[in-house]
């Protein structure tokens, strides 16, 4: 088996003595969709922050394609090919939707500040390639018609799609989606599912953090379950469904997806 795409080893984070994340280890295989589930406060979002550099881990290592990410700033991790979205949807409200996407890919397109200020030939080439990529992704998420509208006019669900398209812009090695369908209406959940499926078929790797158990069980090849900051299960959806610790800690007490 090939080397893992992402490897997290012994991640720990505590706040004032409370263990938010304790000794969490996992690795992801390239080309797969992996889900990370768990009840509220189980440490999912903290784990994402530790992996993507938005919070510093107290202990543990993270590597992407065998290169260590530990201690790097979030922007450095993003540039190395690991993109993420946020649980609370974030877009640049006053920028056009197309500009939102262009901004997400600009730092790795091989052009510098002077290229951008002087609009050099290299810049124009990179810019038109990025616009083509943006058009393709906007088409995929069904927002092509709105490309020039400011992102602020979009609905919550549409903003989530812009954030998803943004994360995909630089053709990253791995995309981490932090609750892509939380608070999104059921029809749109199916839309998002279809979009992720198509991207996966094209070879994109995902780690999806979700509350919506049905959604991730349908989509992913592998499910990691956290509870109270610890990993309690890691396997195929079927294995996880049958796992007693999971039933007790999560599905048993929260048969209905909690918030959403």
């Amino acid at each position: 088996m090939s080397a893992p795409l992402l490897k997290a080893d012994g991640l720990c984070k505590s706040y004032a003595g409370v263990h938010a994340v304790a000794e969490v280890s996992f690795s992801l295989v390239e080309g797969t969709i992996t889900a990370m589930i768990g009840p509220n406060g189980s440490g999912k979002s903290t784990t994402v922050d530790l992996v993507t550099g938005f919070q510093a881990a107290d202990a543990g290592m993270v590597s992407l394609d065998g290169r260590a990410l530990t201690g790097l700033a979030p922007e450095q991790i993003a540039r190395s090919g690991l993109m993420r979205t946020f649980q609370q949807v974030r877009v640049y409200d006053t920028l056009a939707i197309e500009e939102n996407l262009l901004t997400a890919a600009q730092e790795t397109d091989g052009t510098g500040w002077l290229d951008a200020l002087l609009r050099s030939r290299r810049f124009r080439a990179a810019d038109s390639a990025a616009r083509a990529r943006a058009a393709e992704l906007l088409d995929l998420v069904g927002l092509a018609r709105m490309a020039q509208a400011p992102a602020g006019v979009l609905s919550y669900g549409q903003k989530k799609l812009v954030a998803l398209a943004g994360a995909l812009m630089p053709r990253p090695r791995l995309v981490i989606l932090d609750e892509p369908v939380a608070g999104v209406n059921p029809t749109r959940v199916l839309e998002v599912e279809a979009i992720i499926r198509r991207l996966h078929q094209a070879g994109q790797s995902f780690l999806i953090i979700e509350h919506n158990v049905d959604f991730v069980m349908r989509l992913s090849q592998r499910v990691i379950v956290l509870d109270q900051g610890r990993k309690i299960a890691d396997g195929t959806p079927e294995e996880v469904r049958a796992n007693e610790a999971v039933l007790e800690a999560y599905l048993g007490t929260e048969a209905e997806p909690a918030d959403a």
Binding site: P74, A78, R90, V91, Y92, A104, Q106, P170
Partner: peptide
């Protein structure tokens, strides 16, 4: 320019900008 757009992006959401590889 792209630099101006990037500054606006940073002003609006610094975390999002960093997640896009931008060093504010």
């Amino acid at each position: 320019s792209r630099v101006g757009r990037t500054l606006l992006a940073i002003r609006q959401d610094e975390s999002l900008a960093r997640s896009h590889g931008i060093a504010p």
